[in-house]
Design a protein around this nucleic acid. Structure first.
Lengths: 335, 335
DNA sequence: TTTATTTACTTAAACGATTAAGTAAAATTC
DNA sequence: GAATTTTACTTAATCGTTTAAGTAAATAAA
């Protein structure tokens, strides 16, 4: 019974045409206020909600956007999603979330499955496993798309990113200012522009301060947590760095663990700085100095860009939007 | 152009009716293999995908399910979602994820917005902020629904939960076996059956071993992380418990932090056990003894139940499904 | 007062699929 | 060889909206 409330039913009860009901519900100028009120009142009384499939089919709008991300179990992405949800709600849109688990096949499979009108647009943060420029070059022609955080440059799409290079530079300078000379780099996202920029920021800051980047002090992230821990242990044992610059938050726990196990006192023997959006950074012991990306704002901004596209606004806009990350100095860098 | 591939187009090119195309695509027995092959080949060649809105409208099926959870930034839920996604993919369904942020208004708002045929069914893990039995009693009549982890008993719906009482009992016994006598309880989810069962398991295990539960050793979770830390600090200072039983993983970092700050050696001075699905539990220092819920399996099981409902199977089934959590003994309980 | 415009509707087609009902030809049964 | 059944289709209605096009009445302009 409840499911049978549609505009036909409303039209019958009010003895007007279904076109009038439809237009009244959409607040069309063609309908008198009196009639609108009658329709709205009855719709409310009968608890009418439009059938999304029917309006999608006719109007070619789904009022749904998709978010494609590597993981949801990540503070950065979950905050970004929160930002996206806020904007989506403002525009009355639903949000579909797809996790790729960094798998490029899944990423393409999900994305392709959205091209038949299931969603109005896509927000995507690409997988780090591979670079897939051709695919996206084609994709942006087919559906409104915004890249966020993990972006593809030089495509005809909005890119919402952070100033990775600058903030890495700044963070490295901070370590150097604290007296560090042997700064190891824990390298994540190496296949992506973001990862490369972070690394360059570090490298250039070293060189700008008369320090040479040492390949042996660079560790690359791997999926296996045990291995990351072991790599850091070996790094500490063999090279005794006086700082760890972690480019992704996944390195934090193994870094702390390795230091503690090997009796490296933080921040006295070794200083640690990490990209991180973990709310618990200040609860660690010692509290962690972080480079924190404005994840929530990135989500908001990316969604805003997408709705600009959907509403055919912001034509002349700059498509490259860069938000500033923040260096939050805490106990792990001491000074 | 690409968007214009529909069954009409296929029918025209093959010079057959759209009904034949539709039936061929759905592998109907009414269509000859020869024709099916022609249709399939052309569909593939033209990269045809059905318009979801059109089939939803006609068939009243969306091939989409919704997951409503408090947070995605949580290891338990993100694992559960992974399990759900696996099953959903097996059945060719999409997964909509909604976060309530433990807000019961949002929870109801999202849920209501799904009742107009946007999804075929819902998997929900209810908000901890309030008990809302009447609402759900009505809801289960309107749409196929499965509760997981945070369940509502005595409704006509599947409940997929874990043996919270038993595992809490077992964990408490483990602490007692390790010599603990003053076991503090860090209380989460107190408004939900799961939270209460965890607490009862602890309490009963204490009493079964001749220990009295002390109200002063019970701390309740609050949103503010700083306050949780401060509460634990005060607990340690004022009562010097010899164990902390944490009923949710959000207490882990503040517990470790407080202990370290106050020079309580884990596990010598104080033992810690916590419900947790954090992959990093074994990387903590010392590694954390956890009660780990089979989150992935809960997701799989819950989704399986939902598809049973959608496919009208499993009529005589027991609606209460209980999976076993595991007590993983590590460094923080020492023995 | 006549004509033009605006207001407030209605009619009917369309969106792209599914499916009940109908049918001609081929295959089977008697 | 006639009657029956099966096979492999087609026709047309339908799902619940939106919207272009049409229209009668009311209002404004001439």
């Amino acid at each position: 019974m409840a499911g049978e409330v549609n505009i036909k039913r409303l039209a019958q009860e009010l003895n007007i045409s279904i076109a009038t009901v439809s237009k009244a519900l959409n607040d069309s100028y063609e309908i008198s206020l009196k009639t609108k009120n009658r329709v709205w009142d009855l719709a409310k009384a009968l608890n009418y909600t439009p059938n999304p499939a029917a309006s999608n089919l006719r109007s070619n709008k789904t009022k749904t956007i998709a978010v494609i991300i590597p993981f949801i179990a990540n503070n950065f992405f979950s905050l970004a999603i929160k930002g996206i949800e806020e904007i989506a709600r403002k525009y009355g849109h639903h949000v579909l979330i797809y996790q790729t688990h960094e798998d490029i096949e899944m990423e393409m499979s999900f994305t392709n499955s959205l091209l038949n009108g299931r969603v109005d647009g896509i927000l995507t943060s690409v997988s780090s496993s591979e670079y897939n420029g051709d695919y996206y070059k084609n994709l942006v022609k087919k559906i409104p798309l915004v890249f966020f955080d993990r972006v593809y440059k030089d495509l005809d799409a909005y890119n919402v990113a952070t100033d990775d290079y600058n903030i890495s530079f700044e963070a490295t300078v901070h370590l150097i200012a604290c007296g560090c000379k042997k700064i190891a780099y824990l390298y994540g996202l190496e296949n992506l522009p973001a990862g490369k920029e972070r690394f360059c920021g570090y490298k250039d800051a070293m060189e700008a301060n008369g320090l040479k980047m040492n390949e042996k002090l660079v560790i690359k992230y791997c999926e296996d947590e045990e291995k990351n821990l072991e790599q850091i242990r070996q790094l500490l044992i063999q090279h005794q760095p006086d700082a760890l610059f972690s480019s992704i938050e996944e390195f934090v726990i193994p870094a702390y663990t390795a230091c503690r196990a090997l009796q490296f006192q933080i921040p006295d023997d070794i200083k640690i700085i990490s990209f991180s959006n973990q709310a618990t950074a200040h609860l660690l012991n010692p509290s962690l100095t972080t480079i924190t990306q404005p994840a929530f704002e990135i989500g908001r901004e990316a969604a805003t860009c997408l709705f600009k596209m959907l509403n055919k606004k912001g034509q002349g806009d700059d498509h490259d939007i860069v938000l500033k990350s923040t260096l939050i100095k805490r106990g792990s860098t001491g000074c």
